[in-house]
Design a protein around this nucleic acid. Structure first.
Lengths: 256, 256
DNA sequence: ATGCCGGATTGACGTGCGTCAAAGCTCTTC
DNA sequence: GAAGAGCTTTGACGCACGTCAATCCGGCAT
């Protein structure tokens, strides 16, 4: 990753990142972020006014396909998605890609790097994406003095533990797809987005890899859902026409 | 869970749990435990001498099939396996069991309960098992004053994040089995046990459920491995005759 | 020892999904 | 706007693994 990409938050007017990056606009968006409680400690985007200057930096924009971090990079920070979407992936010995997860605005990536001290996977932008980078040493130090921040980090880590079990079990392709679509919707909804229609920024192969299916099966399953009136697909935008029936289909995977 | 099972550590001679439970014997065993650093803070089993009295309690013994905690129980503590083995599982709407993981002596269960404040799964003893129960509020409080403990908890949580990806991807039955067997061996080895031969305390259906296979497929795969001279099975004890070839078979899943 | 019972093994068969292949669609590039 | 590349869709086919069923084995109680 190029260090030229790193920009310190410099306060109102000095930051060209658009509405999301302004110190005032940020506070509204940031309320739904998974790291908001830590971020609140530094005054919602005014770290230069705080003793914690340097804890958080704005990163990006990245373009589709660019890597935010790569497998093996030394772990120094976690990243909150500010805009756009990201996938994490592993490349096995024969360069076959395994997609571990997708991450929406307000969600956090990189926590799995704590253990080994290096990132265990790549993080790839799926479209134009921006991030808040939180120095982990600074964050840990903050956590020892602010129990609320420590608790927040524990919960964040614990939560990720549960959500990974989505792909466990021996469920069929339609169950997996339904659960995946509903889960994405729920996560968008949790961040203040509609939840019944959103953009699928990843390719069919990405979904397939993540769900343990073939790209053709994903395509076929979506076609079947469309024929059954469960979903509508316009361009890259997905509409959940019957969220209830989809949720019912995937209930065993969504129980978590 | 019956509160009658809970016994406070009462010091040498008052504890009928056998060699593992003695304060001196414990210090040797505990060195390989995943919570040893936290445990060291209370003097290796002498919490009555510490200001942290009440942080840790010995639990058990439980017998095969007994539940250590159940899905929905309020989360108040994490559990380190002191002896025996445990599985965690989810029951879906039709009471079909999904095995999430197996846990060996020295490993920790319950961390995934932090997020919701209640346990998301059952923990079931697979044989005679004993535990160290760590009050999580006390642990968190300790962590704010002891950065080493905080760091340890972060690493523990982060580590579990990575290991869950073992079942991801679309690998064949033999790859999954090989990876599973080698992983178990590695984890036993990490705790000071042999690593090339150990007891399979779970049933074939448990393995199958965990690996996303049918019990019959597990059985067939093991038979094939045996015919190929890769393993030997005596009673419930498994010997890895050719760990290298097994590791090679499962390499794509063990990369983590 | 004997009988019983749950789990394990092995076989036969069916199927869901992966693989291969061809055609269509979308976005980029000049 | 034309041409190309990459992604998506749809079809045909085969295989790995799930399902069903019968037998076998080990552990436990009588």
């Amino acid at each position: 990753m190029s260090e030229a990409r790193v920009r310190r938050v410099a306060g109102r007017g000095a930051d060209p990142l658009g509405p999301l990056a302004g110190t005032d606009g940020a506070s509204e968006f940031c309320r739904s972020c998974a790291l908001s409680s830590a971020c609140a400690m530094v005054g919602y985007g005014k770290p230069e006014l705080s003793p914690l200057h340097g804890l958080m930096q704005h990163l990006g924009p990245y373009r589709a396909g660019e890597l935010v971090f790569r497998q093996g990079d030394p772990f120094e920070a976690v990243y909150a998605v500010r805009a756009g979407t990201v996938k994490t992936r592993l490349l096995d010995r024969d360069n076959r890609e395994h997609v571990l997860g997708f991450f929406l605005p307000g969600e956090v990536i990189g926590l799995d790097g704590i253990y080994q001290g290096r990132f265990p996977c790549d993080a790839v932008a799926l479209d134009d994406a921006q991030f808040c980078r939180f120095s982990f040493p600074a964050m840990s130090a903050l956590a020892t003095r602010q129990p609320a921040v420590q608790r927040h980090l524990f919960r964040l880590l614990s939560r990720s533990l549960g959500t990974v079990n989505l792909l466990a079990g021996d469920h069929g392709a339609d169950v997996r797809m339904a659960a995946f679509l509903v889960d994405l919707g729920d996560r968008y909804a949790a961040r203040g987005f509609p939840g019944t229609h959103y953009q699928l920024s990843m390719s069919r192969s990405d979904m397939a890899s993540h769900l343990g299916l073939a790209a053709e099966t994903v395509s076929r399953t979506l076609s079947r859902f469309r024929a059954q009136g469960l979903i509508r697909v316009e361009q890259r935008v997905l509409h959940l026409c019957e969220p209830q029936r989809l949720r019912e289909l995937g209930r065993n995977l969504l129980a978590a």
